[in-house]
């Protein structure tokens, strides 16, 4: 009997997961379809950019600075062995622009802004604000979900760019100002190694994709959360876990596409 019931529970989990994927896809399509309002009344989107983008600014800038400083220190220690400290600039810049900037900014964004979005929408649902909107013939997807989606998609590349720029500055502070790597070779090696189209633009594309993934996951988790206190807290946790996994998996795939030969 135990075998039958465990088989049954596996089956129901699988069916449930597929069901959710289908529902999430439909939710994503609906969000895109009803996006008109978030541009016609751009004020709605601006408000959400403030809450998800501007409020994440401090953590992004500080984290970027420290990541760059760590890269500067560790990179210097390793490069020193091969006598190529002057390549520190290209090491710091390439690792930030290609990988760490988009990925870490997206991870921070998921835990800072994504979880807030999930909790907000989940609570709106639990307190029946979503149903109230439907009663007033206001489409909650157009009014609540789509502006948050576009705010996330707009904010994410900007945050990642600021993260990378801050990181390069942190690497500069540690490498050039504190350790004393030659400033000219630091910048010129960096400019020689970082290609605008190949590295910087691909990083922007990455952060854009992460922005879409994180906001869709957070909004869907909020929208699909059971309308209880427990349900909302579970949904918030799932948002952070799933968006982090999604970011790292997408990053691997995008890297394989972009930089694999």
């Amino acid at each position: 009997m135990a075998i039958v019931s465990s088989l049954r529970s596996i089956g129901s989990r699988v069916i449930n997961a597929v069901w959710r994927i289908g529902y999430a896809s439909r939710f994503f399509m609906m969000t895109l379809l009803y996006s008109g309002l978030s541009f016609r009344r751009f004020r709605l989107t601006v408000r959400e950019i403030f809450f998800s983008g501007v409020m994440s600014l401090i953590i992004i800038l500080v984290a970027g600075m420290f990541v760059g400083m760590v890269l500067g220190l560790q990179g210097y220690e390793t490069l020193k062995r091969y006598g190529s400290e002057s390549a520190l600039g290209s090491l710091v810049a390439l690792s930030l622009v290609r990988e760490l900037g988009p990925v870490l900014a997206a991870l921070l964004f998921a835990s800072r802004a994504g979880s807030a979005m999930t909790a907000e929408i989940g609570l709106m649902k639990a307190t029946e604000q979503i149903s109230a909107m439907e009663m007033m013939a206001v489409n909650p997807i157009a009014r609540v979900v789509a502006p948050r989606f576009w705010a996330g998609v707009i904010s994410m590349p900007l945050l990642a760019a600021m993260f990378s720029a801050m990181g390069v500055f942190g690497g500069y502070v540690v490498g050039v100002v504190l350790i004393g790597v030659d400033e000219g070779s630091f910048w010129s090696q960096m400019q020689g190694a970082v290609d605008f189209r190949h590295d910087v633009l691909n990083g922007v594309i990455k952060s854009f994709v992460f922005g879409v993934a994180v906001t869709v996951i957070s909004l869907f988790e909020g929208y699909d959360a059971p309308p209880t206190a427990e349900g909302v807290s579970g949904a918030t946790t799932r948002t952070v876990v799933q968006s982090s996994l999604a970011i790292l998996m997408l990053d691997f795939m995008l890297t394989a596409f972009m930089f694999g030969e």
Binding site: V97, A161, S164, A165, V168, Q191, D195
Partner: peptide
């Protein structure tokens, strides 16, 4: 605030393009 955020982000991109990139 949002304006400052957007300008800051674009400025970071410009820095990445010209100062960091080629």
């Amino acid at each position: 605030w949002v304006g400052m955020f957007v300008v800051g982000g674009l400025a970071a991109l410009v820095i990445l393009a010209f100062k960091v990139g080629n």
